[in-house]
Design a protein around this nucleic acid. Sequence first.
RNA 1: GCGCGUGUAGCUCAGUUGGUUAGAGCGCGUCGCUGAUAACGACGAGGUCCCCGGUUCGAAUCCAGGCACGCGCACCA
Length: 1171
Amino acid sequence: MSDAIAPARVSDPRCADLFLHPPYRFQVMFQAVKTDIKFPKLEDETLAFWKQNRIYEKSLELRKDAPAFVFFEGPPTANGMPHPGHCLTRAIKDLFPRYRTMRGYRCERKAGWDTHGLPVEVEVCKELGIHSKEEIEAFGIEAFIQRCQQSVWRYMQEWERMTERLGFWIDISQAYVTYHQSYIESVWWSLKNFFDRGLLYRGHKIVWWWAQGGTALSSGEVGQGYREVADPSVYVRFPLEGVENTSLVVWTTTPWTLPSNQFAAVNSKLDYAYCTDSETGETIVVAAALVASLADKTKRTLTVQKTVKGAELLDLKYVPPFPYYYDQQSKELAELKEGGQCRPSWRVVEASFVTIDSGTGLVHMAPPFGEADYEVLVAEKARFKTPVQLPLLCAVAPNGRFTAEAPDYEGVWVKDADKPITRRLRDEGKLWHQEQYLHDYPFCWRASEDPLIQYPRESWFIRTTKFRDAMLENNKQIGWLPEHIGPGRFGNFLESNVDWALSRERYWGTPLPIWVCESTGQMEAIGSYDELLAKQGITGTEVWLEAKAKYPDLVDDLRVHKPYIDAILYDSPFEAGAKMRRVTEVIDCWYDSGAMPFAQWGYPHKNAASFKDQFPADFISEALDQTRGWFYSQLAISTMLFSKEEVAYPHPFKNCIVLGLMMAEWYESKDGKQRFLTEEEAREALGSEFVVKNGKMSKSLRNYRSPQEIFDKYGADALRWYLFANQPPWNSILYSERAIKDSIPEFILRLWNVFSFFTIYAEIDGFQGPADIVESLDQMNSSEFAKSPTYRPIEQRSELDRWMMSELAAACKDVVERMDKYDSYGACQTLNSLVDALSNWYVRRSRSRYWAADKQAPEKLDAYWTLYESLVVISKLIAPFTPFVAEVLWRHLKGDLSGVRESVHLCDFPSGDFASTDPLLNLRMNLLREIASLGRSARMDAKLKVRQTLSRVEVTLADESHIEWLKKHDDIVRAEINVKEIHYASGASPFVEYSVQPNFRKLGPRVGPLLPKLKQALVTASGAQLLEQMTLRGKITLSIDDKTIELDNEDIQVRMNAKAGWAASQGKNCVVALNTELTDELIRDGIANDAIRLIQDMRKKRQCDFADRIEVVLQSPETLIQDAIQENRNHICAETLAVRLTMDTSAVGVELEAVELAEFSVQLGLKVVKD
RNA sequence: GCGCGUGUAGCUCAGUUGGUUAGAGCGCGUCGCUGAUAACGACGAGGUCCCCGGUUCGAAUCCAGGCACGCGCACCA
């Protein structure tokens, strides 16, 4: 750039005499940039620049010996399209590593992909048009697995594109992949550790069972699938044996469990009532507390005969609704341990969890289909000498269909049996009442049409409950953002910890590495593939080799997967001649992701040093839904695997930002039938007949714009800034296209305009910036700039420059402080006000300096340097937030100066040590801004436009100590509010009245209840008199309720109000009053300003170049106008670059136009003068 | 049902240990500027701080009880 020789130019078009000089040439360091900027295009160019010059890699190399800042990437699943929510997590995940890298840390960013589990299997099934396990097996497990492995990468390209386009710097080439052999072997190692410590066990429990999928699900998975549904709610008679015409009434919402009924449970402490049902004359037994509400609900009259304690009902025998087991077993008796005999099933038993919150206070027990029911069975078994006499009565097969044990329903899917069962109960007179019940019920999170059922099943568990306290302690030391997650949501979740249901009876997942002796049933865990191959008498390895020979493209990692791994057998160490065979299950894919802190390295089989270096993480971030997903799986595995003695808490992560969920915003017609993503589209189609809707993002509703479209229209910086700067990241965030669009003018474009302003004048003036520094530059810091002969020490510059540098330094310190605390939102607010100060005060008030004639005037160079350095620092400050625009700024600002770092992302983050912060100056500058603002406000009230010059403004200050300083800046205030004179005062003033208020904070503790009266006394007294007293005697003495109170200066607060009747405006620190009297001279002055405005307007309309010289004709019969023009002729000409201003009607070749000037119609025309 | 969170301007959100005139941005309105110009800027209107009690001299802020919304949990039989 600096080689280019610019064409001849006028450096300052305001200076007419420049035209007299021959054109001259100079080198350009900065070229004016266009303002109609297309950010997406710039971003694409920046991406190419990064890639070509390996900037990310260089940013890592630069810090290769620096202390580590450890980041863990929570692995996404790449078998679905990335959506806006992923942009949020990836933006936050990018922000802090970038920031920390600039702050001097080594922040490696290893990508990762979650590749196992139900999500993948379900996708493949959809593709194949199959659903059940039988169908998968028929298709062939080998082929199915291969499909799964390929399916995982289906949307890989989209993910990579989104990641790159958003500016998320991460090592995708080094990504860990959960199906890779080394990853699986790490997982195996951890599971072997648990197994050997007795923490991995096989248990028979009631699990949430996905019948169609033939597998149990973890509580985390179950939680994903709750949905509100209406289920039948039935009240069923259980007739008591041996008591005439008397029934227990139980309530259930799962009629299909009734054929498997085994007990009726009561709470022995509750009262139960025998009631006469007027409708049927029968006697029913329900909880006494529920009689009234049941009568009301069923519109019956229930008359209580007697009330008994639940304990008295225990062991009463009843007839269950279905005869399937009852017919054969009801005559049996069994020996109780406590002595005596009893029928094992179909009697009333005790269950302390029974409440009167709902139902009847009597609970139908079907032990296979409820955890609580199952526990009751276990408890009952314990009472008997021969527990086998209490078998589990289960008429449902694992596929969710009735078995032959319930012949009437054999083969029927349980949920389909609800209706026929209810009908039959009614027909047989066993149904006492029926209604609909609306409640949440879990469905499979991946096959959302399939309801889950509770079902008894052998399954593998991790004994996490044993580590509950350790997990809680570990959790306490994690820095959660927002803080309440730790003790709140996450802590509560840990408190109610249950053992982790680890195994899945599925196909595509990490195989559970446990081999069982076929003969003795004894088991051992295997920690790696090599360990397995080293076993005695190994067989079955050829299955993989044959497959590989048949399909040479097979990924080698598949050898540790089903079905190949299942083929490997070896000699049992437990019994000669027996073989060891792997159990059939794979594991929960959440375990995979939770193991990533070590498994990403293949630890401990390899990369031990990397693991030690990169553990635990300093920072992770995911959305709220990961509380019991990845946040939990990591914490649980880590806490169990690494003792506190080995690794100090917290591990595996120290800080975690929990992101809010993203909401969609869209527009729809009032009937909801038409949906639009932007207001413009809606308006175009519907006029004003539409409504704005917010809600969850939904693929099927298509209620959000794809991230790619946002990138194309507004750019990644716009999205990033919107996400960072509009709310703390843990709030739920509205993905609103309009709001994203707005983030451009709010911040990015405002900054860009300042930059553009700088380049325009730097080019015109040939400001060289640091180009004249002989030494090689590096990061363009103050100390480097100081070597330029034109760079003056900050102390020597004007107040405005010093103020700007002070603001800049303060902002740097503030951003660092906030970002170190992970307060990205606060940091953005600081950045926003910094850019506002730069644009709306520094540049605005400095403009005249940039068009000063003398290019080498120190004040002019100061203005350039201050603005230039501000932009350089800001480009570094914003680099982690909006990396693209930061890079573009940096590259323009550095030109091609030698030695300067090629990318802003290779710089150190500015700490603000280049200038001292000056709070007093800051305060005073704000006061100045306030005065200007109040002046404008007063003008508005008096309806006096700024162009109308006024003679005088009176500023009354609360604190006189600033007056001397303010007087030095009269020029600024005069220019801002267009007055000729400013007068400052602090004491009594004709424009101000004072009111005195108590200093509540100070007096509250001292006078307590007297405060209201004290306030009253002060407010009603004359403020001026009180102040006089204070000035004379240094105190105010008041008498309240016979008590004398003395107030000193600190005990009161003085408030100033503008007196009525003045064009005045009051702020916190001052009152500004305008002299609104208009002299003829002032009026003429105003008319001249108006004329200037009209001429400039016309220049623009006629598309004059801003350096064009013109001739102006302005005619009016009014003497006032004529005088005004005459008097201000030179001023007008100078402002409008007019070489001639005439009122002569005979001017040739000038087209006249009628315009309004000071309420008169005048004729105005102009033409460009050719050189 | 239980738990966590949230409730402040038309919208999105700030609001320090309780201090008496509750803030910002956007939007809206009025206006200015016209050499940052399809830009820039100023000013203004707009609030029952969800409701109801309590503590206190004083509550958006603390406490209790409600209500609404969001999320989570599960012994919803």
